[in-house]
């Protein structure tokens, strides 16, 4: 039995096409006579999206109980989430345990890169779906056997739209925006930048080659989220990487 959500699916491949029921009734035989000619009204009142929120809250309680600091990393494809995590693992894995849940439509490429850098990783292939959901994360946490007092990175599917609406139970959403993407992204994707607590402006080593106005980008981000924290860094060159590493360590080791 799954330790978080209580369903029977454990230690299986996480395939989003494999549906299973939570506590739904088995087939019942109703022997009441039915007038097949008469139309009648049936009240259903069943919400569809709130299921994700309840799984997310279960995850959140689990993380709190086990002192797991969980971050939901979001961005467009190619902003640098995986590279950021690879470098983070290399620099911090001696300080605390790190585990990663990777989300992509297809392939194990990202999980393989994470494992090569020295941390356990579980890949969820969402297939047609464009975001990770809380139920899948709950199972992944069990399957990965995430340690107490650790950092859990959830790298979401590259997408600045849908993941904003799907709580996974994380402590914070961290949005990564690279300077090759355009400085007005916070205004164009306001839900995501509003939902994030930290924005990492990445690839700043490329600033001389692109028309990216950092001050304007910061201003736009603060317009949709006045409380958002912002860092500028280059993962590949190491510039300001320690700001991110310190921010993270302070929160894991506390």
């Amino acid at each position: 039995m799954c330790g978080i959500c209580g369903c029977g699916q454990t230690e299986q491949q996480h395939d989003h096409n494999h549906s299973h029921e939570h506590g739904s009734d088995t087939h019942e035989h109703n022997h009441q006579p039915v007038d097949l000619g008469a139309e009648r009204l049936v009240q259903v009142e069943q919400a569809l999206l709130s299921k994700n929120n309840s799984y997310a809250e279960q995850n959140r309680s689990y993380f709190q109980a086990h002192d797991i600091f969980a971050l939901n990393l979001v961005s467009s494809p190619g902003a640098g989430k995986t590279s950021l995590l690879v470098e983070t693992i290399k620099q911090l894995k001696e300080q605390f345990p790190i585990a990663v849940i990777e989300g992509d439509q297809q392939t194990e490429h990202d999980a393989e890169r994470i494992r090569a850098s020295g941390a356990p990783a579980l890949q969820i292939n969402t297939g047609r779906a464009c975001h990770l959901d809380a139920h899948a994360i709950g199972h992944a946490v069990m399957d990965l056997k995430v340690a107490d007092n650790s950092f859990l990175a959830i790298e979401n599917v590259g997408n600045l739209v849908c993941p904003a609406s799907f709580d996974l139970g994380e402590a914070h959403k961290v949005v990564v925006l690279s300077v090759t993407e355009g400085d007005d992204k916070p205004l164009k994707y306001p839900d995501m930048f509003h939902a994030a607590d930290l924005m990492l402006i990445n690839k700043i080593d490329l600033l001389p080659y692109v028309d990216f106005d950092v001050d304007r980008c910061i201003q736009y981000a603060k317009q949709v989220n006045p409380d958002i924290q912002i860092m500028q860094l280059s993962t590949t060159k190491g510039t300001n990487f320690s700001d991110w590493a310190t921010w993270l360590s302070d929160r894991v080791i506390s």
Partner: peptide, 20 residues
């Protein structure tokens, strides 16, 4: 204030059906 906790309107619900 920029932060409001959503209490309604962020879900989709099957309300009712006319069935035979």
């Amino acid at each position: 204030h920029p932060f409001v906790d959503v209490t309604a309107g962020n879900d989709m619900q099957i309300k009712d059906l006319i069935v035979i």
